[in-house]
């Protein structure tokens, strides 16, 4: 896997940037939560590119944000269950 550089990122479209960042985020998120890694990575990719880069550089920040994503997911699932109960 080629190293992620600023020049590589700026030469890519916003969509390609997210793809490149997602490829790097995913294995790290898998370490934190293997079961929900696809969804957590999806949530984290909604952040700005600069914030995602911070997450890639800081395992602590990544863990914090991943935990927040799990909380969001759980809230969303509760909401869906209550909607489906009607």
């Amino acid at each position: 896997q080629e190293p992620l550089t600023i020049s590589l990122l700026v030469s890519a479209s916003p969509h390609e940037q997210k793809q490149m960042l997602g490829v790097r985020l995913f294995p790290l998120v898998q370490i934190i939560d293997k079961k929900l890694a696809e969804k957590i990575t999806g949530i984290l990719l909604e952040f700005d590119t600069s914030e995602i880069i911070y997450m890639l550089e800081s395992p602590e920040l990544l863990r914090t944000m991943a935990n927040k994503a799990v909380t969001l997911l759980q809230g969303h699932q509760v909401q869906e269950v209550s909607m489906n109960s009607f």
């Binding site: 997602g22 990719l45 869906e80």
Partner: peptide, 26 residues
């Protein structure tokens, strides 16, 4: 507001092109 939020969150799968938040309300 059109019920598409049920598709949230978009899932990232390695090797699959990222589609992001298409047609999903914030």
């Amino acid at each position: 507001s059109n019920g598409s939020s049920i598709n949230w969150p978009p899932e990232f799968h390695p090797g699959v092109p990222w589609k992001g938040l298409q047609n999903i309300d914030p």
